[in-house]
Every structure is written in C-alpha cells, then in structure tokens.
Simulated scan of single mutants.
Amino acid sequence: MTYSDAVEAAGGRRGGKRERLAAAAARVLHEQGMEKTTIADIARAADVPLGNVYYYFKTKDQLVEAAIDAHAQHLAGLIAALDALPTPQDRLKALVSGWVEQRELTARYGCPTGSLASELDKRDDGLDQTLATVMRVLLDWAERQFLALGRAEDARELAVALIASYQGISLLTNTLRDPEMMATEGRRLERWIDSLA
C-alpha cells in the first residue's frame, strides 16, 4: 500500500467533504509545507468550495490536526496490510520496500510525516506531540517485529535504528534530489534485516 493509496483509503477523493479536506491537507502540507499552504490551497485540492471549509474546520491549525489524523489512518492501514504477511522479517522488509517505492515523492518533498514533524517542532501549540504519537505507533510496531525475530535484548534499539535510518535517508534523498539514494539504503536495510533473522 503506497502513501497515496493509504491516504485515499483514509478519506481521499471518495469520502465526504471532511475526509477529502483531511486527505488534501495531508497531501498539500507535504508538497508545500505549512508556511506556504493556505486554506484555499487545501480547499482547491479537495475540490471543496472555500466557504464550505469553515463548516468543517474553523482554522488552518484544525486542518493540520486533520492532516495528522490522516497520517494516523494511513499508518493504521499500512500496519494492517503488513501484519497480514507471514513473518516479522517479511513485514519489516515490506515496510522498507514501501519506503523505496515512494522514493520519487520523497526526493521532491521529503518524508510526509517527518517533514511535518520538523515544521511542527518549531511551534509551541502541542501539535508536534500529537504527531509524535503517530510516529511512536510505527516505532512500537517495528519493536514488536524485532521482538518476534527473537531480539528481546535490543528490539527497541533496532526499531529506533530502522526508523532513524529511514528518516535520515529521506532527508538526504530530498536534499540531494536523488531517489536512488533511497533505493540503495533500502537494499542495505533489507540485508540488515536478513542478518538479524
């Protein structure tokens, strides 16, 4: 399941106006960043008249919260799909493969969640902690996979290393606009996961 597939499943174009606005907020904030994004940009991307937006969301911050919820829904769908795979090794490698599939998008805009987290960290309204909760879900899931691989002693450290590697390569891929960097790191991470099994 790709990022755009999951966002669509979490609301996307088929949902009601509120869901379309939340999915559009996640997409537009990823592509433009918080400072450049306006409520009108989100309304246009959701194909919702600007005046209707205020019925659902009174402020841009409420749309940011909705975007965080869209990220949470995307992650829940992704985890459900990964959990259907037979082994923790398969699940972890599928996660990495999904990241690599998104390398062109990452090269243009960075990691959807990581980029938003970086922007929210500069504010003092608590939205950064709301997004941190979403990121902890992935970290906890990865830890459970390493535990299932028999790595009880260092499962949390391995989970942190995996997520940190992805966030780091996302930053480099975006900064240098080089999607092949992510493909190379993906192959390395798959070998690393195999070595732990």
Rank of each mutant, 00 (worst) to 15 (best):
M1V: 08
S4V: 14
D5H: 07
D5F: 00
V7I: 15
V7K: 09
E8R: 06
A9D: 07
G11L: 02
G11I: 03
G12P: 05
G12E: 10
R13E: 15
K17G: 09
K17W: 08
K17C: 06
E19S: 12
R20T: 08
R20L: 14
L21I: 05
A23V: 12
A40K: 14
A40D: 12
A40I: 11
A40N: 13
I42V: 14
I42G: 07
A45G: 07
A46K: 04
P49N: 15
P49W: 03
L50G: 12
V53Q: 06
F57M: 04
T59D: 02
T59R: 01
L63N: 04
L63T: 07
V64R: 01
A66E: 01
A67H: 05
A67K: 00
I68Y: 10
D69A: 13
D69M: 08
A70Y: 06
H71P: 00
H71Y: 14
H74P: 03
A81D: 08
L82I: 01
A84M: 04
A84Y: 00
L85T: 03
P86A: 08
P88M: 00
R91Q: 14
L92F: 05
K93L: 03
K93T: 00
A94V: 01
A94M: 03
G98A: 10
Q102H: 12
Q102G: 11
E104W: 06
A107D: 13
R108Y: 08
R108D: 12
G110F: 06
G110I: 05
C111H: 11
C111T: 07
P112S: 15
S115T: 14
A117H: 13
R123E: 13
D125V: 08
G126S: 10
D128A: 15
Q129A: 13
T130N: 12
T130I: 08
V134Y: 08
V134S: 11
M135T: 15
L138C: 01
D140I: 06
W141L: 02
E143C: 03
E143H: 05
R144S: 15
G150N: 13
R151S: 01
A155W: 05
E157K: 13
L158S: 08
V160N: 11
L162V: 05
A164E: 12
A164C: 06
Y166P: 03
Q167I: 02
G168Y: 03
L171M: 10
L172C: 02
T175M: 07
R177D: 06
R177H: 15
D178T: 09
E180I: 10
E180S: 13
M181T: 13
A183C: 06
T184M: 11
R187H: 05
R187Y: 04
R187F: 04
L189V: 09
R191E: 12
D194R: 13
S195R: 09
A197Y: 06
